[in-house]
Write a protein that binds this DNA or RNA. Sequence first.
DNA 1: TGGACTAAGTTCAACTTTGAACTACAAATG
DNA 2: CATTTGTAGTTCAAAGTTGAACTTAGTCCA
Lengths: 155, 155
Amino acid sequence: MSDINKGVPWDFPQFHNWVAVGRVSIMVRKAMADQLVGLGLDLPAYDVLSTVCRFPGLTQTGLAEKLLVGRSNLSMMLPDLEKKEYVVRKLDPKDKRLRRLYLTEEGEKLARQGLAIQLRLLEHMLSPIDELESEAAGQTMRKVAKHLEASPFQG
Amino acid sequence: MSDINKGVPWDFPQFHNWVAVGRVSIMVRKAMADQLVGLGLDLPAYDVLSTVCRFPGLTQTGLAEKLLVGRSNLSMMLPDLEKKEYVVRKLDPKDKRLRRLYLTEEGEKLARQGLAIQLRLLEHMLSPIDELESEAAGQTMRKVAKHLEASPFQG
DNA sequence: TGGACTAAGTTCAACTTTGAACTACAAATG
DNA sequence: CATTTGTAGTTCAAAGTTGAACTTAGTCCA
């Protein structure tokens, strides 16, 4: 390592570890996006369908929080998904501010096809990793996520 | 778990593990973006500065590959960074197609300040994780990245 | 009840990011 | 050495994403 690089982050193993996480994350999103073309979906639409499939009756704000996107994003996207009849929004009778999200039969079918693809992709990408190791990495990530949510970084 | 969810991905631990990776990745990018406001940088600009800091003389295409963004993106962004005098592009004398990237003194300063922030953020987010565990997770991620590069998923 | 306050969702204009088509240069092939 | 093929970078228009301001509905509390 050259002198000029002394004391910079790439001296620290943690830095490399984190860079790898970021790279894998982007690579998998791209791979998934490629596969979804066959279903006529893009990644954001798939994120909506798969999440509503898992959590039917979710509100738009709830969905935005899960996906870590802005609410306005969903206000733009959901009318399209409704027009394609993948999703329906039902006003909550108890609280008329809430528009609860459900999949149509068509939407459910697409979500499940997408989820099947995602499972195969996971299986492929994790094939060089034994189950224990993968579970350990997942455990670590969940710990970090929990910690970051509980105490966000303040400079 | 209700009947309707049988056979869907969230029955599989791998699915949860992967979702955690994705979430942490986005959360950290957001946290980093917040911190960079103080330096007058956004995340894409920081990605450029930190990467050129680490790999001076990188070409634009090389940088695009490292950052996993399109080349056109950099063609839009780099003139701005050059105007702000954070970056200079020098034509390679041996191959006039190549524009090699270097940081100015100012750019170098900003990159190092950003990298220092990134290290503190890493330290914070990894505080509940012991070093061995974090190293193991990094190792796992590097294996996966390598595998995905060597054999991309083909449906 | 009424007035202030909070939360859900929408709109809109600004900003990003992308991919396809293009130019300029280099390398390979005959 | 001329032609073909390939690579680096740019341009431009289209699509996506965002935050701030707004509307409407619910909550709190005097």
